[in-house]
């Protein structure tokens, strides 16, 4: 591999030179994409909560935070599925008792007769 020493300024110069060789349509697309990104960043800064979440890498804004957000969202969705599944199973188990309980309560034998050993 060639040992090329690139400084920030040399990279900038190379990129600027390359831009002049691009098609006008490609330059226009790049400009539009840049404007969209800046616009979305400005909108984020206007919402303090989202800006705070973005700053801590929780709300999507950059590729890195997108990845973090996706991981958090997946973990949350998994936890929510577990919780709702457990609650649903608990409800199913309790449902069986209500039928027999009302039968005992309405029976001709008093409740004490069923409880006494």
């Amino acid at each position: 591999m060639d040992n090329i020493n690139l400084t920030t300024n040399s990279i900038k110069r190379l990129l600027n030179q390359s831009v002049t060789q691009l098609d006008a349509a490609v330059v226009e697309n790049l400009r539009a994409a840049r404007n969209r990104t800046l616009e979305s960043h400005r909108a984020l800064q206007h919402t303090p909560v989202l800006a705070w979440l973005n700053h801590h890498g929780v709300w999507p804004g950059s590729p890195a935070s997108n990845h973090k957000f996706r991981s958090w969202a997946l973990a949350l969705a998994f936890a929510a599925c577990l919780l709702s599944g457990a609650a649903y199973m608990q409800q199913l188990n309790e449902h069986d008792h209500s039928e027999i309980d009302i039968a005992i309560l309405a029976d001709d034998l008093p409740v004490d007769a069923y409880v006494e050993q």
Partner: peptide
Amino acid sequence: AVFLLSLPA
């Protein structure tokens, strides 16, 4: 969706 799934619990 996460919020709605958590509602039963």
